[in-house]
Amino acid sequence: MNESVECEIKLERSLIQDGPKFLSHKLIVTDRVAYLKPTISSMLFCFVYIVVGMFLISLASYVLLQSQKLDLAIFIGGFGIAIGTFGVSLIQPFLQRASFDKHSGVFNNKRDRDVKIKHIVSLQINNKVVIRKQALSYRCFELNMLTKNGRRINILNHNNAVQLELDARKLAKFLTVPLLDLRREIVL
């Protein structure tokens, strides 16, 4: 092992390549707990898929019962199941509330390994441009945290800069850690 190797963590770099083009979550701070609450609009867009999926599954059942067209029923039902499942998979991350709990002393986002709150070193705001070939490219922002072990974990990821700044400040105050604004000019 070469212990003289230096390791630099590039805090300016965003953690996630993608990001939604809407406000996905807001931070809610109570006395001892801070958690991320999904917005209604983000849930609604997921529901479109669930509704369309359920509609197609119902239609497939109707076709099967009324006209006995097995092939059409399978085709419509297959699409319905695929679209519905897709909707459920989309909505799941929104339902899992990431939280900073001072009672238990951990940050839990139901995805990464739990982080002890006392190990959080700083928060960073990063910006990025989500590039789409078949849709408008757009700016997106991340709120990330750095732990004393050098792990970087994403907390928020959406395109509402004002709300993200507000939430970042609230969270930094709650955790009593510095907030670094690392947004940079992105040249495409």
């Binding site: 993608d18 939604p20 867009f45 997921c46 479109v48 898929y49 078949q134 849709a135």
Partner: peptide, 22 residues
């Protein structure tokens, strides 16, 4: 059905949907 799906992509701006389509 197509309009509902197109609607969710072009109005919703859900990144995973665009990514799946791509």
């Amino acid at each position: 059905v197509l309009a509902a799906l197109v609607f969710s992509v072009i109005i919703g701006g859900m990144p995973s949907i665009a990514a799946v389509t791509e």
